[in-house]
Design a protein around this nucleic acid. Structure first.
Lengths: 233, 233
DNA sequence: GCACTGAGTATGTATATACATAATCGCAGG
DNA sequence: CCTGCGATTATGTATATACATACTCAGTGC
């Protein structure tokens, strides 16, 4: 009985919606009716309903009332952790090799999805991630030196670039694209896979404000890696 | 100038946090100071700060003040839309075939990841999704008849089961696992792929309260499908 | 120097009130 | 029957106020 009133009201309304008692599209009682039902002021009910609307459980229309929202199509909070952290969480030994490091300008062969303009100076890094000594992921990364000048002096032979960036550079926006692809012969050799083996590719572009920070493509062995997410609507 | 006061305050505070002007751990001004700064009542400021706290941008401690939260390592809101919706959004014609429909109990061949107990009655559905007449995804689904009895009467020849479930059954929790795999000969034929072609597999288990609603594995042609997500921390 | 206590304070919750806003409904007129 | 307009009304926003609560900090006593 000690829970705050607004939490009890919210829990009650959520229970009715999630149990299906109030199905999608149902018009829930007006604020004035809930005010009577719970014996509280309209402000209290209003804050609860505003919170439910922000969470997407209900939709509100002036003059018409508040309606149970159609369930969200599917939106998941997908967590893509730092690779070393992920590997060690599985109880395996993490290691990585810096295969190539080059300071150059963006050229025609760089993917246009990187969002980096031709000629823009970048640090191009290629590295291979290992779990218990076995190749696990192949990473090709471009870091904008205009946006992240400190990257030019960073020691990426000790700390992988993804981890370094997470620790040193705040970001404001990112875009992911997840695909499946067959390993090319060269990639198959790097990942110790048969040619054509299925791989999970995660391409990520990260911004801070207007400037692209980094564009990275990480290719994981399909048989050794999967992305997981557990979430609520 | 016409935006509501609380939205202007919220946007201003968010900008200071995201720009790095107020770094993680920084103590933001007290409600009383913000009240003076914006020339409004404490209730208005309080609602804005409560909203920021709910979104996880700040943490609040009584007597101590409000502090900018440490940013999450990487968390993405990954949207996995309804397949028909997704296909039509690309301007292609969506179609699907119900390949098999069987009412049975969970057996030893069903994946343990489904979370359904052996013997539990389910509706097992297999279907194939087509975009502009070309096979696009293969879906195997189990629907718990104990939790969703209405599924037994649903007409899944007109509406695909995923869409039907989204429209009729609210869910409270879900778990995803995304992997890449090589198409087996049978799958390759169903998806009109060369054997061994890379596919993106999305396995999803969905709950309502304690009961598993459905377990589904959707296998997409890797060359025709990718998951995308754009997000802010 | 340390543990305990009490005062002070920022946030948390709740109410009453007021006016703005937008969408719906019904009615009048064509 | 259909259109347009105005009255109605539920929500949206904002304020002033009040008291509860939990935490910090300073000061007291040992």
């Amino acid at each position: 009985m000690s829970a705050p009133l607004k939490e009890r009201i919210r829990a009650d309304l959520e229970a009715r919606i999630l149990s299906g008692e109030w199905p999608p599209g149902y018009r829930i009682p007006f604020e004035s009716e809930l005010t009577d039902l719970y014996g509280c002021s309209r402000m209290t009910v209003n804050k609860v309903l505003a919170g439910l609307a922000e969470s997407g459980l209900i939709q509100r229309r002036r003059r018409a009332g508040s309606f149970v929202a159609q369930p969200a199509l599917q939106s998941a909070v997908l967590r893509i952790p730092d690779i070393p952290h992920e590997v060690e969480a599985r109880g395996e030994h993490y290691d990585f090799e810096l295969v190539a490091r080059e300071r150059r300008g963006i050229g025609p062969k760089d993917p246009p999805a990187s969002g980096l303009a031709p000629g823009e100076p970048v640090l191009a890094l290629t590295c291979r991630h290992l779990a218990d000594g076995r190749p696990f992921a192949w990473e090709e990364r471009l870091i904008s030196l205009a946006t992240v000048p400190a990257a030019a002096e960073a020691d990426f032979s000790a700390v992988p670039p993804g981890t370094w960036l997470l620790r040193h550079v705040p970001w404001t926006e990112a875009e992911h694209r997840i695909t499946a692809l067959n390993a090319s012969p060269a990639l198959a050799e790097s990942l110790d896979l048969p040619p054509g083996g299925a791989c999970l590719s995660v391409a990520r572009r990260t911004w801070r404000g207007d400037g692209t920070l980094t564009y990275v493509q990480q290719v994981f062995r399909g048989d050794l890696y999967s992305l997981g997410a557990r979430f609520a609507p």
